[in-house]
Simulated assay, not measured.
Amino acid sequence: MYLKYLYLISLGVSAITGIYQMNKITRQLKTVALLCTYTFLLELSVFLFRHNFGYQGNILPQYNFFILVEFMFYAYFFKQIVKNTYVLKAIKLFLFIFPVLWYIFSFYCFNIFQWSSYSFVFGGTIIIFFALIYCYEKLTSNETTSLLNEGEFWVAIGLIVYYTCVVPYMGMFHYLTANYEQLAVKLKKLNLITNIIMYLLFAYAFLCKMIKTEKYSS
């Protein structure tokens, strides 16, 4: 249970930091900050309804809808920062077809009350690809700015860490819960740990410019 609390705290820190820095961060980071705020409100409401009001109903519809929101936000984030022309076309294509695929996966392959693993695996894999392309562009560019102060870079790193670890697990979610329930419970901890790492990296990303400013002014 303590991992769940740490996850909520790290998510809250990321959301609050993003809101606090909203006037100072780039337009691209504002996209991530808004998504963090939405995610925090969603997770907090689920947590409170379950622990304070004893709600035991199916919460998968909320998370299935969240899949659509998060991947559209992340794709739009990379659309603003990736420079490769072909990858930009791929991002635009993803933004167009993913809602259609999400609808098919969520209502025909499964139903809205079941975990839409196909949507998560497809979206997560594509986001890993976009993040890797962006990191490659940053690492091979001739820019002299330090990556320590590039908030977008740390968001990309956080996304790579999280989705690389979690996509295989969430893709096998139905199989694991049906056949290896204890293993599924243990792997759920990996989901929480990588979430914590990702949102702490997001919080750092929102503070990058302020840290840089204070460093040079001292």
Rank of each mutant, 00 (worst) to 15 (best):
G54W: 06
V100E: 03
I25W: 02
Y216F: 15
M210K: 15
I59H: 12
I67W: 04
A184I: 00
T144L: 07
V46H: 08
Y2C: 07
Y163W: 11
F113C: 15
L11I: 06
I19A: 14
K30W: 04
T31K: 06
G171Y: 00
S146M: 08
F40H: 05
S14F: 05
N58Y: 10
E143I: 07
N84C: 08
E70W: 07
K89S: 11
T39P: 08
M210Y: 12
A156T: 13
S218R: 14
G54T: 07
L183H: 08
A178T: 02
Y162A: 06
T85G: 10
E214R: 11
A75H: 05
Y2E: 15
G12Y: 01
I112L: 15
S141R: 10
G123Q: 03
L183Q: 09
A90F: 06
F206W: 11
L34D: 02
I133C: 09
I67H: 11
V13W: 02
L3K: 03
Y134F: 14
G123D: 03
F206T: 02
E214S: 13
Y55T: 12
Q182Y: 08
A205F: 12
F202G: 05
T31W: 05
E152S: 08
T39D: 09
L11F: 05
L44Q: 11
F122T: 00
F98Q: 00
C36T: 01
N64V: 11
I25H: 01
N84S: 12
Y7P: 09
K79W: 13
F47T: 07
S218N: 14
L192E: 08
F73P: 05
S106P: 04
I19Q: 09
A131E: 07
K4H: 13
K215A: 14
F173M: 12
V121N: 01
Y5F: 09
G57S: 10
T213E: 15
N142W: 04
F153C: 09
Y204C: 07
G123V: 01
G171A: 04
F96R: 08
Y216A: 15
K212N: 15
A131T: 10
F49A: 14
L95Q: 02
K24S: 12
I193M: 10
M198E: 08
A203D: 05
F66W: 15
V100C: 08
M210E: 15
F153G: 01
L8W: 07
F78K: 04
S116K: 04
F40D: 03
V82R: 01
L11N: 03
F110Q: 10
F105H: 01
G124T: 03
